[in-house]
Structure formats: C-alpha cells, structure tokens
Design a protein around this nucleic acid. Sequence first.
RNA 1: GGCGGAAUGGCAGAAUGGCUAUGCAGCGGAUUGCAAAUCCGUGGAUCUCGGUUCGACUCCGGGUUCCGCCUCCA
Length: 459
Amino acid sequence: MLQIYNTLSKEKQPFTPIVKNKVGLYVCGITVYDLCHMGHARTYLSFDIVLRYLRHLGFEVKYVRNITDVDDKIIQRAQQNNETPGELTQRTITEMHADFAALNLLKPDVEPRVTTHMPEIITVIERLIDKGYAYQSSTGDVLFKVNAYEGYGKLSKQDLSQLVSGIRVQTTSDKHDPLDFILWKGVKEGEISWASPWGEGRPGWHIECSAMNHKHLGEHFDIHGGGSDLIFPHHENEVAQSCCAYDTPYVNTWMHTGMVQINNEKMSKSLDNFFTLRSVLEKHDAETLRFFLMSAHYRSQLSYSQENIDQARASLERFYTSLRDVKANVDVEMSYGGYLAKFEAAMNDDFNMPVAVAVLFDIVKDLNKLDSNSDEAKDTAGALRHLGKILGILENEPEQFLQGDLSQDLTAQIEALIAKRIQARTDKNWASADAIRDELSALGVILEESKTGTTWRKA
RNA sequence: GGCGGAAUGGCAGAAUGGCUAUGCAGCGGAUUGCAAAUCCGUGGAUCUCGGUUCGACUCCGGGUUCCGCCUCCA
C-alpha cells in the first residue's frame, strides 16, 4: 500500500483517494518571468514520478500545474525589456515547455493561468469578504484577516504570536494586522490590471492557487505539492483562504520537495547562484539530468555539482551498456523476475526513488550474467525497460545514448579507424593497433571489443 | 529568537533494534595481444557524549555542525 509523507501531519500516511481510483493532484508551477532553473526541474521531476507511479498503480490522475503569469517580477521584467507582460510570458512559457519536454516530464492535464481565471479569483475573494475573513483597506487593497482564522499556522507549524514577533517585513499602515496578506492589489500607474468590485487591480500571489485548484479539482482534493520553500507563507495562506471560503476539507495530502543546493546553499534567483535548465542541458544529455534529479529522495536536499552529474551519467552508462546487446522483449509480464514487487515496495514507501533505482541495478547485474541471445535475457531486459519507463528513464536506444549525436563525417572517420584497427589486430600488428586506438581515444572514443565484434562509446 | 529538516565508507545515497543497500571510484582475480565492457572476490561508515537494551547507525536525553522557512522563491 502506498504511503505518502504528509507535511500537515508530519508523518507517512497510507494513501486513500477521496474518490475510488481517482486522484486530484495540484502542483504549484512557476512564475514565468525567466527561464526555469535546476531547482524548478527538481520539483517537477519529483512530481512527474509521483504522477507516473500513481498511474502505474492504476489511479486515474488529474494533474493540474498552474502558471503564474502576472506578478510584480513579470511586470518589472517586461518593463525592462520594453514589452508587454503578455509578450514576456508567452515567450517564457514556450521555453518552459521546451525544457520540460526535454526532461521527459509528462504534461499536466490542465495548466491554468492566473490571467485566465480572474472571475474565479474574484469569486473566492467575494466569499471571503462576505464571510468576514477579508476586508478592503484604505489604499484599495483587499486583505485576508489572518487572526479571523483559528487554523492559521497548522500547515507550517507556526504559532501566531511567534510569527508576529519574528516578522521582518515592514508593515504597511493600512493592514489591520501585520500578518494580513493581500488578496487583491489595487492598480498602480502603468501596471496591467483587471476590473473588480474593489476597483482595478490584480490578484495577490496566494489567492490564484486557491481559485484555480478549486475550479479544476473541486473544494476537496487529494494531493497538493510544491517546493518546500512554499510551505510558508504560500501554502499556509492558501489553506487559510480555501478553508475559510469553503466549508469542506481542503487538501488531504501536502507534499513538499527538497531544495537543490549549490555550494551548500539553496539555488535561487534571489541568491543569483542558479543554473538554468537550458544551460545545463547544453552540456549534458537530458536523461543524465533526469537521472541526477532522481538520485536522492524527493524530500531531501539535492546537491548540484559537476561530479554528481557525472556520476549520474556513469550510472546510466551501466544501464545502457547492459541493454545494448540484448533485444528486449517489451511484451514480457511486468512482474517477470520478481523485480516489480521490490520496486513497488520501494516506491510505496513515500516514493523512495533511490531504492527503486537500486532494484534496476539488481536487474542489470542479473542481465549481464545471461547469454544475451537467450529468451531469459530478452525477458529480463524487457523487465528493466518496464521499470525504467515508470521512472521515465531507459527509453532511448542504447547506441544513441552511449555514442551521442555525431556528424556523418565523424562517424565515418571513427568507422574507418575501427576497420583499420581490426585489420591490424588480424595481422597481429599490435603497435599499429594500439596507435589507432590512441587516435580514437583522442576523438573521445572508447573501444569495446569482444568475440562478437567491436563497438564503441563516447568518453 | 520561532518552526522544520539533516549529519552514514573517497564521492553520491538508502535502510533497519541483531541479517549484503545500490551506483561511481579503489584493490585482487577471471577474461583480453594489451585495453574497454563484463563477471567473481575484497577493504572502507553510521558527528559527539551519555542512557535504555542481551544487542543501536536505528529508540531516549545533552552537545556540536549544517541546511531550509519565518521577505519574492520550486
């Protein structure tokens, strides 16, 4: 049985969907003012695996991942670029989709945007005002009255009095209470805005998610996820809004992913220590990055470094080397060899990807011992492909992965040298054979020679 | 100051109150003309100090260090 760690209860809990066999999954997406970075990639890769595994278990999952396409930074960046916010976000959304596709992330079923959900957002705010949980300030903003909600702080385990004493943000005078947060922000000169009962303006950050997941998943849904940096205040505020606007339970399971670290520090835009996914994809193949991103448990921090990515590459080379000489029987039963049970045991334990991956290595070990022409080897390779697919890996052709993309010229050059070396070895001209191997090595080619023939991979 | 998480072998990274994690790297052997790949074998760890226990890396308590959140953040 699947167990998931719930931020709300701080423990692993058996997962039972609200509606039998169906799962509503909402993940906070990115604010699209720039290219996404490795931290984003980590979070969405984690939920991609959650999604794939839930589907593997037979759940019908509705995956909703929003796009924040209006906020201060978007407005600011668009002004700097001398373009409209819409032009900016259209471009960054296209880039995001390209990056995520490269990482083999499945598409969300719904990808709602703030700018197309104004009526829904306004409706939620109206409900909050009607029920006495929100008020309009003297400056025109609409604010959520935090002390009106007794449950405030239950997700992030914050105590209201401690929050007040520790508050660092300067309080604007028109807030009744420094903890109150903005639901609707009155328009300022030159900003994009929408009409509302409270005048022209735009939504505060948190309300959009409450409105969008209400629309697409209903008042009460199964899983809500995001980076652990969103727990407070974003998700705490969302809980407050949704629970006050609607009198039903809100989210059953809250899942949060660990941060990507670089030099022992969180990777983030504000620290200016980030690597865009785009720039990393230019240097490494996408599957290596995907594998790197799943190399630690999703709730742990993940340290970004060249060495760790190289290790991911080396691990994948072991998989693909093993698969290279076997024609995998992809029609083999999922449960062939008993690996699936171990794999599921790992994944059922709060999606323990490192242990699940270790099961794949068990398969490799067995596969490498078999005669690659045997049915047993083909079936074992099929089992490896099956489990890999659940994780979204090992879907490429081994030769393609191991040799990379090469120009025709280079391929011809390599093949010619290999032919020369084969001749030299036939002639037992070892000096010449070794010299040719050195030449190939200089081209970044590592030879692999066996009784059945010669092949190679890139260094 | 408050809240939360973490400290495991050279690196990455799991797990468990007693039983091999796994991958990369190292070492020895098989194989190879020599390599590569592969197989077999192997060394090496649980921050620290106490406690509970027949037995703890695992449970409890005190330290130390690190990270995240408390401001926009995945």
